[in-house]
Computed example of a mutant assay.
Amino acid sequence: MLAIALRLAAMVMLSTMFMLVKLAGEAGVSLPELVFWRQAMAVPIILGWLAATGNLGLLRTRRMSSHAMRATSGTAGLCCNIGAATLLPLPVGTTLGFTTPLFAVIITALVLREKVGPWRWTAVLLGFVGVLVIAQPGGAPVPALGLAAGLGAGLIVAVVSFQIRDLSRTEAPIACVFWFAFYGSLFAAILLPLYGTAHGTYEWLLLVAIGLAGTLAQFLITSALRLGQVATVVVMDYTALIWATLYGWTIWGHVPSAAMWLGAPIIVAAGLIITSREHFLARRVSPTSAIDESVTEEAAQGT
Rank of each mutant, 00 (worst) to 15 (best):
T201C: 10
G211L: 05
Q229R: 13
A153I: 00
A175G: 10
Q229M: 12
L206R: 00
F187I: 09
S161L: 07
Q163G: 15
V208T: 11
L206Q: 00
I242P: 01
V230H: 07
L207P: 02
G228M: 02
L186W: 07
A224N: 01
M236C: 11
H199S: 04
T239Q: 11
T222D: 15
L212P: 01
S223N: 13
V233E: 11
V177M: 12
M236A: 15
L191K: 02
A181Y: 08
C176P: 13
F219K: 09
W204Y: 06
I221F: 04
L216W: 09
P173M: 04
A231G: 14
I210V: 12
L227W: 06
D237I: 11
V157Y: 14
A158R: 03
W179L: 04
G184T: 02
I242H: 02
A217W: 03
L194G: 08
F182N: 08
E171R: 03
S168K: 12
F162P: 07
V235I: 14
Y238A: 08
I164F: 14
T222I: 15
A158K: 05
A172S: 11
L186N: 06
L216A: 12
L186S: 12
A175V: 07
C176R: 15
S168E: 12
E171P: 02
A158W: 06
L227A: 08
L206Y: 00
A198Q: 14
V230N: 10
S185E: 05
W243E: 04
F187E: 11
H199P: 01
Y183L: 04
V233Q: 03
L241N: 11
G214L: 03
L186C: 13
Q163I: 05
A209S: 14
F182E: 08
A153N: 12
G228E: 01
S161M: 11
L206H: 00
P193Y: 02
A213P: 06
Q218T: 11
G196P: 05
P173S: 06
G152I: 00
L167C: 09
P193S: 01
V233A: 10
F162A: 07
T222W: 15
G214V: 04
A244G: 07
L194N: 08
R226A: 15
Y195S: 13
E203Q: 14
L192Q: 10
A188E: 01
G154I: 01
M236W: 13
I221R: 00
V160P: 02
F162V: 02
V159L: 14
I210T: 06
L241R: 11
L194H: 07
L205C: 12
P173T: 08
G154N: 03
A217P: 05
H199N: 08
L194E: 08
L186P: 09
V208H: 03
A198V: 15
A224K: 00
A231Y: 09
A188I: 00
A172N: 09
D237H: 10
A189K: 06
A188M: 08
A231C: 06
Y238V: 15
V157L: 10
A188T: 01
G211M: 04
S161K: 11
V177G: 05
E171V: 02
A209N: 10
Q163K: 09
L216Y: 05
P193L: 00
I210W: 00
T239V: 15
